[in-house]
Structures are given as structure tokens and as C-alpha cells.
């Protein structure tokens, strides 16, 4: 069985479209998107004059004059994994001043965009035999779960054990706490309890693949820049300092259950492999903002991993 795993596309439409093509392109039997699928920012296009929109994109103030220019600007914004949002000057003021309203708009836009993505998936995967799993990650709001559930072609495996051919797939979107206080974070002890609870559904003699958004602590797959309290990068001796930020609960769960394979994301800059006991753990990393989907192909045969290959599609 060939598995294609990727994660952390963070709203990049190009990466989503590539993910949908991955099964055919890599001849994979199963494709998994392991979390953090929604974008990180809303970019308002404020209509200051009729047919003229102002926006702040990637550190620059831009003005789009005419529909064609506005559409082109929206395309560029989406390419970077952000959500374009056309609004009037009055609505923009509302977005700026009313945090609650802003959050509501961001969530609405996010869900609408995801619905559009899922329509695309249902259409594109209609004739495919591959199973397609898409799971939220710690950055994804809970509202997207109901949107994902509406898809006819995509399965959300989060929080359960799913049978996939001769294997069982255990999935969990939650992570240990991060400095950003994102949607799906739990203290280590609670996360471990959650993982154990999901693990009760595992069948004893069937090889397992763990699809855990967060990588195991101190595995080499979890090295991220050390941050100051105000989220600045710590630089020492002319280098940014990296520290392990993965989950101890995830590590303990892997050590206890010893699945065949661990698939992880979350830490974009920590592409690599690690072996914990007899478990091969993989993190393909992420370069979503360049329109590139970092993934890994894994060939499984019985109770062994035959080969794996990192791919940048």
C-alpha cells in the first residue's frame, strides 16, 4: 500500500489543488492531509473609490484599479495562504475596531473557502479509488469540522481509529501548548489521556499508522526557533537557536504502542525522519507559502515500511 502524507498547507489554494492531484500523480492508494489546512490571515480589499481597492499585502500597500486588477490581487493573496476579503471603508472600520465581528468574519470566510475547496475535491476525486483523509490541525477552528463532514469524498479521521486496507489509522489533530494559544491545544497530561482514549480502539494484531499532527518531543522532527515572550526569534552567535517543541505525550504514546509508522507535521522547518523503538516517524515539513506542497511517500508491505521518499510537489 502506498501512502502519500502532507500537512500544513495553511490556506494555500495551490497546495490544496496539488494535494487533490497527488493520488494520481504518485499512484498512491491513500492520501492524508495531516492538519493545519486553513489560512493564517485575512487581507481586506477596501473599496475606497468605486472600482478601486486598497490592501496591505506582504508588507506593501497596494491599490487595485478595476475588476481585473482586483481579481489578480486576490489570486496573489490566496497563493500565499491568506484570505482576500472585499469590503467597504465602513466595514473595514468595523473589522478594525470590533474584534468579535472581525473573528466572525474571518471564520465565515474560512468556512466559505473550505466549502469551495471541498466542492473541488468531490469533483476531482469522484473517479479516484484512493482514500482521501483530511484532518484539522491545532491552527484550525472547530467550525471547519462541520464543513469537512459535509464532503462526500473526503474523510476526517480526527479522534478515531479508521481501518485502511490491512492497516489501522489513528489520528489526532491536537497538540501540546504553543506560544500562540491556538484552537486545539491541550496540556501534556490531558493530551496523553486523549491519545490513550483514542488508542483503546486499536486492534491488537493489526499494523498501525499514527497520524498525529504534533511530532514527538525531542525526536529531531520538532526543532523550531526558540522564541522570546513577544514572539521574536532568539539569535545567538549569528544563528537562530532551535529547540525541541514536540509533545511528550505523543512520544510516550508512540513508545507505548509502537505503531509501524508515525506521520507528523506542525513544525514546518523540521523535515526529517526519526526512529522511536520500531516506529519510523516522518515529518515532511512545509513550504506552503511558495505554492509547494511538501509531502512524503511511504510504501507499506505487511508489517514493514518498504521505503519512503520525501517529495516536493
Amino acid at each position: 500500500m502506498r501512502v502519500y502524507y502532507a500537512g500544513d498547507i495553511h490556506g494555500s489554494e495551490k497546495c490544496w489543488r496539488k494535494f487533490l492531484s497527488a493520488a494520481a500523480f504518485y499512484e498512491a492508494d491513500v492520501v492524508i492531509l495531516g492538519g493545519d489546512i486553513t489560512g493564517k490571515a485575512l487581507v481586506p480589499l477596501v473599496e475606497r473609490r468605486p472600482g478601486e481597492w486598497s490592501a496591505h499585502v506582504l508588507g506593501r500597500d497596494e491599490v487595485a484599479r478595476g475588476e481585473e486588477a482586483a481579481t489578480e490581487l486576490e489570486k496573489r493573496i490566496r497563493f500565499n495562504g491568506f484570505y482576500p476579503y472585499r469590503c467597504s471603508e465602513d466595514e473595514y472600520r468595523g473589522l478594525e475596531e470590533d474584534e468579535e465581528y472581525r473573528e466572525r468574519v474571518v471564520t465565515d470566510v474560512m468556512c466559505r473557502e473550505l466549502e469551495r475547496w471541498l466542492e473541488l475535491a468531490d469533483e476531482k476525486l469522484a473517479d479516484s479509488d484512493a482514500r482521501c483523509f483530511v484532518m484539522p490541525g491545532n491552527d484550525d477552528e472547530f467550525e471547519i469540522d462541520t464543513v469537512l463532514a459535509r464532503s462526500t469524498r473526503i474523510e476526517n479521521p480526527d479522534g478515531r481509529v479508521v481501518r485502511v486496507g490491512a492497516y489501522q489509522l489513528l489520528s489526532c489533530a491536537w497538540t501540546n501548548p504553543t506560544p500562540w494559544h491556538t484552537a486545539r491545544e491541550l496540556p501534556e497530561d490531558e493530551l496523553e489521556a486523549k491519545l490513550e482514549e483514542i488508542g483503546t480502539a486499536l486492534e491488537r494484531d493489526m499494523p498501525a499508522v499514527f497520524n498525529l499532527h504534533c511530532p514527538p518531543h525531542d525526536s529531531g522532527l520538532d526543532m523550531a526557533p526558540w522564541l522570546t515572550d513577544d514572539l521574536g526569534v532568539v539569535i545567538r552567535g549569528g544563528e537562530q537557536v532551535l529547540i525541541p517543541v514536540g509533545s511528550r505525550a505523543v512520544r510516550a504514546t508512540i513508545e507505548r504502542h509502537q505503531p509501524l509508522l508515525g506521520l507528523h507535521g506542525h513544525i514546518h522547518e523540521s523535515r526529517g525522519t526519526a526512529t522511536i523503538g520500531r516506529t519510523l516517524c516522518l515529518n515532511p515539513g512545509s513550504a506552503y507559502s511558495e505554492g509547494v506542497i511538501d509531502g512524503v511517500l511511504v510504501d507499506l508491505d505487511g508489517d514493514r515500511v518498504v521505503r519512503h521518499q520525501f517529495v516536493q510537489g
Binding site: 493564517k40 490571515a41 485575512l42 481586506p44 490592501a55 496591505h56 500562540w180
Partner: peptide, 11 residues
């Protein structure tokens, strides 16, 4: 005009 970031990892 400014953009609005969500609470998301990596920013």
C-alpha cells in the same frame, strides 16, 4: 489598510 492575522502557529 492592514491585514488581520489569526492566532496561528509560526507567526
Amino acid at each position: 489598510v492592514r491585514m488581520f492575522e489569526r492566532q496561528a502557529t509560526g507567526l
